[in-house]
Amino acid sequence: MQNTQGVILLSVERARQKLYRTQKRYGVLSHPKVIEQSKILDELLNQYYCKKAVCQ
């Protein structure tokens, strides 16, 4: 399970960096592309915490 968490954490970091770049490019947090990337990051974070807590 540790390896899976590591892969998810790597994906989280990449998604976070992409979110920062997207926000910088479009300049506002309410731009649809920024919101879309934020949702992707949220989903990855949910996956990570669910695996860590052994969600059902």
Rank of each mutant, 00 (worst) to 15 (best):
P32F: 04
G27Y: 03
N46Q: 12
G6P: 03
T22Y: 00
Q23F: 07
V54P: 01
R14A: 11
S30Y: 10
L45E: 13
K39T: 11
I40A: 05
K39S: 10
E36N: 06
I40Y: 04
K51W: 09
L44G: 02
H31Y: 04
P32L: 07
P32S: 03
K24E: 15
V12Y: 00
I40G: 02
K24V: 15
N46A: 15
A53N: 14
K51E: 13
I40H: 06
K51S: 13
V54N: 11
Q56D: 15
G27W: 02
L44I: 07
Q37D: 01
Q5A: 12
L44W: 03
C55S: 06
K24I: 14
E36H: 04
Y20D: 15
I8K: 03
R25V: 07
E13C: 09
I8W: 02
S38E: 10
K24G: 05
Y49A: 01
S30C: 07
G27C: 03
L9P: 07
E13Y: 07
M1V: 09
Q2M: 09
D42K: 05
A15M: 06
N3R: 13
I35A: 05
S11V: 05
C50G: 03
Y20F: 14
Y48K: 04
S11H: 05
L9S: 14
L19V: 02
Q17G: 10
C50P: 03
G27H: 08
E13N: 11
Y20Q: 12
Q2H: 14
D42L: 05
Q23W: 14
K18W: 06
I40L: 09
Y49N: 07
C50I: 02
V28S: 14
H31A: 01
K33A: 14
V12A: 05
V12I: 09
V28Y: 09
S38H: 08
E13W: 08
I8Q: 01
Q17Y: 06
K33M: 10
H31G: 01
G27V: 00
K51M: 11
G6T: 07
L29M: 14
I8E: 03
L29A: 08
R25L: 10
L19W: 02
M1G: 10
N3T: 13
Y20E: 14
R14Y: 05
S38V: 08
D42N: 02
I8A: 01
Y20R: 14
R14Q: 11
L29K: 11
V28L: 13
